[in-house]
């Protein structure tokens, strides 16, 4: 089967200048487990576009590095 990668706008935005490399607070609390660390930078990012825009990641980030947008299709 032929497959392509499609670009999508994701709801969870991480300010890399504020994200702490040793912290995994947002990753641990996400009910859908959609956040991960970029192995090269140590910063969190949204790896899977499966967001309930429920906000624990944003609320529990100790440095306010995360902003959750309403997913584009609903906005």
């Amino acid at each position: 089967m032929a497959l392509i990668n499609q670009r999508v706008e994701v709801p969870v935005i991480v300010d890399e200048s504020k994200c702490l490399e040793k912290c995994t607070a947002c990753i641990e609390v996400c009910p859908l487990d959609v956040l991960a660390k970029n192995p090269e930078t140590g910063k969190a990012y949204m790896k899977y576009d499966e967001c309930w825009f429920c906000l624990p990641c944003e609320k529990e980030c100790p440095t306010n590095a995360i902003t959750v947008q309403i997913p584009f299709l609903l906005r």
Binding site: V29, C30, P31, P56
Partner: peptide, 12 residues
């Protein structure tokens, strides 16, 4: 399957 700290219908 998530983390009980923020899981289920009342995650928030």
């Amino acid at each position: 399957k998530a983390n009980i700290r923020r899981s289920g219908a009342i995650a928030m």
